[in-house]
């Protein structure tokens, strides 16, 4: 019995282990682990960091990158008050309509509006960016191998190319981008933004904050998922003990 169980476990383990190993991306450099607060089964978001990350996104990244799945109201979950969210939303002009004359019109944003996209369509985005399409960042942390660690690595991975690497016109060297040539120029520079909480705006800090923010944007359910998961697994462990005791009792006379 023990042997067969072990065998079953081995098969199961083999199946589970084989899958992602099979899918590990080739080509890019190894991505260092930054030990973010949301990692691990008890992980939660560092809200201050995520709020700073939103500031970096809105002052830097949002010039080219849309986040069309996000609404301003979602920022409430990051700890902003209703007034703060309304103020942030009202700073952007969003298109609405058609009105009674059949015309589209601009109005100040409301919390229920989606984040305003920098470009009306992908073609416009390409035209403004030398043919490259800046990806939407709503779920980027789920859409890249390595998630937030990759985002941090990419943002801090700019530098001079090794001598044997030729970089094409309009491209930039990045140690962590697959293929090492990225169309996006170095986006973060020291003191590019000013944080209200006086956190020094180093490239590393900003990269860390924006990676936290993007992870939150991609997985807003993470904290609830973790806390529910712990409770459910504890419940199931107790139930497993009980079920095993019942099973033993019933089988006691069957051998």
């Amino acid at each position: 019995m023990l042997r067969t169980s072990l065998k079953a476990l081995a098969i199961l383990g083999g199946l589970l282990a084989a899958a992602p190993a099979a899918q590990a991306a080739e080509g890019a450099a190894h991505i260092p682990n930054q030990g973010f607060s949301f990692q691990g089964p008890f992980g939660v978001y560092d809200r201050a960091s995520a709020q700073r990350g939103f500031q970096v996104y809105s002052q830097v990244c949002s010039a080219c990158h849309a986040m069309h799945l996000m609404s301003y109201r979602n920022l409430r979950d990051l700890g902003l008050t209703e007034q703060q969210v309304a103020a942030i939303a009202s700073q952007v002009q969003v298109q609405d309509g058609p009105n009674d004359e059949g015309q589209m019109f601009e109005r100040p944003g409301r919390p229920s509006d989606r984040f305003r996209s920098p470009f009306p369509n992908p073609q416009a985005a390409r035209a403004a960016n030398n043919g490259a399409l800046p990806p939407d960042l709503s779920v980027i942390a789920k859409a890249r191998e390595g998630g937030a660690n990759y985002i941090y690595a990419l943002l801090t991975g700019y530098g001079d190319p090794p001598p044997d690497v030729h970089i094409a016109e309009g491209m930039h060297y990045n140690a962590y981008f697959p293929g090492h040539q990225i169309a996006m120029a170095r986006p973060l520079n020291p003191d590019q933004v000013e944080f209200a909480d006086h956190t020094p705006a180093t490239v590393e800090n900003m990269a860390r904050d924006v990676a936290t923010f993007l992870q939150w944007a991609a997985e807003p359910e993470l904290e609830l998922r973790h806390s529910m998961g712990i409770k459910i697994i504890v419940f199931l462990l107790v139930l497993a003990g009980l079920a095993y005791a019942v099973k033993r009792k019933i089988w006691a006379n069957a051998h």
Partner: peptide, 25 residues
């Protein structure tokens, strides 16, 4: 009784995936 016990173990593995590694596979 025996299937019930196995079922709970199965749920534990399942919950582990869903709550802690939902995109692992």
């Amino acid at each position: 009784a025996k299937d019930s016990f196995g079922l709970v173990i199965y749920f534990i593995v399942f919950a582990g995936l869903v709550f802690f590694a939902p995109n692992y596979l």
